[in-house]
Design a protein around this nucleic acid. Structure first.
Length: 262
DNA sequence: ATGCCTTCGCTTCGAAGA
């Protein structure tokens, strides 16, 4: 089985690329982030006849997460227990959706950006990760053999190797000790990044800013990951980042990450 | 070995992205 995650930066603007990507790589399950649309705006009709089912959660033009699967979509869950809220008045954001796909509990996660160190959005980001970690630890406590894939845009570059320039990111979000600690705390909860050993760095990224020729200049970040429970990690045969998808007109600023399971 | 930012909704510029 082949699973993948991709921050598409608008499903409506990118739907043709998404369908082509699924076909080109023979993907079974795709976790999508930043659909940037409401339910009534999601291009469901494009997926009719492709053999894929879709579940989507979107509230407005921001965020939005979906799962596209041809191996079934069962027991859909929107958000997670204790998920922090944002805004005034505080409200849930569309940053997490989950479904059972071919025996794997697949999560599509869009971790809050953080914006700036010291910004309230950074507190929100850290609280969001902490709440998710607590929940995710509980899922394994309930069933140590569960196959769980925490896939998405984590908005954290876990190591210095995951940033094109540590100097350029001095004092910036995505690389702070607090964010990296929050990311690695998932290891203590029983989840490991299943992609890195198959996509070694340095210079291996999943995101390149649209501005200043970041992609051709190889100025990127590695921030999109699949964290697997022990039972899922044991099934991982390989992983790859589809850099080709970042090229050309109409590309997302993120590249898809693909994981092959036995 | 790719191309100088893109998306959305609408105060057609501003907010958000990272």
């Amino acid at each position: 089985m082949r699973i993948a995650t991709w921050n598409v930066n608008s499903m409506r603007a990118r739907v043709d690329r998404v369908v082509a990507f699924l076909e080109r790589h023979d993907v079974d399950v795709l976790a999508v982030q930043e659909t940037k649309c409401r339910e009534d705006q999601f291009p469901y009709s494009v997926f009719e006849g492709t053999g894929y089912e879709v579940t989507h959660h979107g509230l407005n033009q921001w965020n939005g997460v979906a799962i596209i699967s041809r191996v079934g979509i069962e027991d859909v869950q929107v958000g997670f227990a204790g998920m922090p809220q944002w805004g005034d008045p505080a409200a849930d954001e569309a940053r997490a959706i989950s479904a059972l796909c071919g025996g794997v509990r697949v999560w599509s996660l869009y971790v809050p950006n953080g914006r700036e160190l010291g910004d309230p959005h950074m507190d929100y980001k850290l609280a969001w990760l902490e709440a998710l970690r607590t929940d995710a630890a509980g899922w394994l406590a309930d069933d140590a053999n569960a196959q769980i894939a925490l896939m998405g845009d984590w908005n954290v570059a876990p190591t210095d190797e995951d940033v094109w320039s540590t100097e350029a990111f001095e004092g910036k979000t995505h690389v702070s000790p607090a964010e990296r600690s929050a990311f690695f705390s998932f290891n203590d909860a029983g989840y490991t990044d299943v992609t890195r050993e198959h996509t070694p760095g340095p210079g291996t990224y999943t995101y390149w800013d649209y501005t200043q020729l970041s992609f051709p200049k190889k100025r990127g970040l590695r921030i999109d990951f699949c964290l697997g429970s022990p039972a899922l990690a044991n099934r991982v045969e390989s992983a790859m980042i589809d850099r080709e998808e970042r090229k050309g007109k109409g590309a997302s600023d993120h590249a898809p990450v693909i994981v092959d399971l036995t």
